[in-house]
Structures are given as C-alpha cells and as structure tokens.
Amino acid sequence: MIRSLPQSKGYAIGFKLYVLAYFTFLFAPLLVTCILAFNDSQFPSLPWKGFTLGWFTANLPERVGIFHDQINLDSIWISIQTAFFVTLLSVFVGTCAAFLFEQEDFRLRQLLYFLMLAPLVIPGVILGISILMFSTTLGIYFEEKWNLDVGLFRPGFWLVVLGQFSFISTLVTLVVSARLKKFDRTLEEAAMNLGANRFEVIWHITLKYLRPAIIAAGAVAFLMSFENFNTTLFLVGSEATLPINLYLQVRDGSTPVINAISFLLIVGTSMAALVNLYFSKKEV
C-alpha cells in the first residue's frame, strides 16, 4: 500500500506502469513538438526526412525560419513588453495589497479581501469582455462630454496590460502575503523604537525580508502574462501578442515555424521554471 507496508509485486509494478503512462501523457505532446521542429519537411508531421535547422535560420522563399520571420518576431517582442509592464504593475500593487491585508486594520477589510480574491473566480473571458465594455463606455463618455479621444480606451497594448494585470495582481498578493504572514513583527517594533518611521522600516527591513517572495511572484507574473490567451483575446488591438499570433496561425494551418517557436518557448520556460525553483528553495 505505502512504502512502509509490504506490497504485492503486481501492485508495485502496476502502480509504476501507471505513473510511467501518466508522465508519457504529460510529455508526449511537448517532446513531439520539439522533435518536429528539426524535421526537414514542409509540414509539422512525420515521416522523418532528416535533421535541419532550417526552421530556425533559413531565409528562403519557401521556408522562412523564426529568426527571419518578422511577424512572429514582432509578436514575441510585444509579448515581452506586455509582460514587463504587467509584472511591474502587478508586483507593486500586489505588494501594497499584501501589506494592506496583513498589517493594516480598517473597516470593510473583509469585503475588500473578498473582492481581491474575485479575479480568481471570474473566468478570464469574462474579465476580458467586461474590461473591453467598460473602457468603451468610458471612451464614449469622454468623447461626448469633453470631445476627448483617449487611445487607452480602445483595444490595444495598454488595455491588454491592464486586463492581464487585473488578475495577475491577485496571484502576486497571495504569494507575497504568504511570506509576510511569517514575518516577525517585533523586528519592525524594534526599528521603530530606534527611531525609524514606518516607511523606513518597510524599505529597510520588511521589503528585504520579502525579496525572495517578490522575485518569485514577479517571475510567475511575467510568465502568466507572456502566456495569457483568454483575457488578451478580447482586448488585443493590431499588435498581437505571441499566443494570439500563434493561435491565428495554427487555426489557419501550420508550418514547422510554429514548432521552432514552441521549442524556444519550451526551453525558455523550463529554464525560467528551474531558476524560479532555485530561488524558492533558497527561501525555505
């Protein structure tokens, strides 16, 4: 049954096979995607026609590798910029929220805490359409009232940033709060007794203590933003982020360039995951 109990051979082998099958199920799609990025064929499918780096480096009429594929490169750059701003904003606001809910006491705290959790239970699609509608409502209002045309209210880069920020901040809040809960507040009191004011204490002591959690939360925020599809779908303007761009290409038939991009993404995110794990290990 468990490791301290005797177990029959059939049970042990059966269980191992099951777990093996599970891991195959987990990794098969990713491995196949990676392997086919190097297949010398015009389609992302077998048979194997030999190894090539063409889908990364080629610049021929019938085969444009990812390093020369301007549309895909642009969308990667847009995704990086989006993720950068989302991370910046959500780490700032999320950390504020963590302090607010862990260290401050005020009326309606419970209600606000509940509201802070709400983005977790609102489906991403709904967040997307509600923000799209509200910004349009605001846009019309500004236009009619003051004859102002505010670009921010139209689908586009900043609306995507705000849409992703709206739920990623909740995750940052939860990660930072979890560490702030374990903080020994007598350290703050000691610093205050020695003459520091609240902001000096936060800057020099509490934030130093929170740093691992903030870095981890920032990494998660970056990745979540980089990969977001559901909310972005409704807010995106002419500048498509990478997941949106890939979606459009896959829907209309795909070439191994998508495998090449996927390969880079898989390698990149795995490395990011390992680095993140390293930091969170250090934290313990």
Binding site: P29, T33, P44, S45, L46, F229, P243, T269
Partner: peptide
C-alpha cells in the same frame, strides 16, 4: 510541474500534431 510552465497554446498545438489525420 514542468509541462505546465509552458504556454497552453504550445501544449494544445502538441496534441494537434499528435492526433490529427496526418499526425504522429
């Protein structure tokens, strides 16, 4: 946990090239 760090788009794409008519 590793596969879930990868974008959902890439994972779905992986299944598509596994399962489609000309798939693996």
């Amino acid at each position: 946990l590793l596969p879930f760090w990868v974008s959902e788009m890439v994972r779905v794409y992986g299944w598509m090239i596994l399962l489609r008519e000309s798939g693996v």
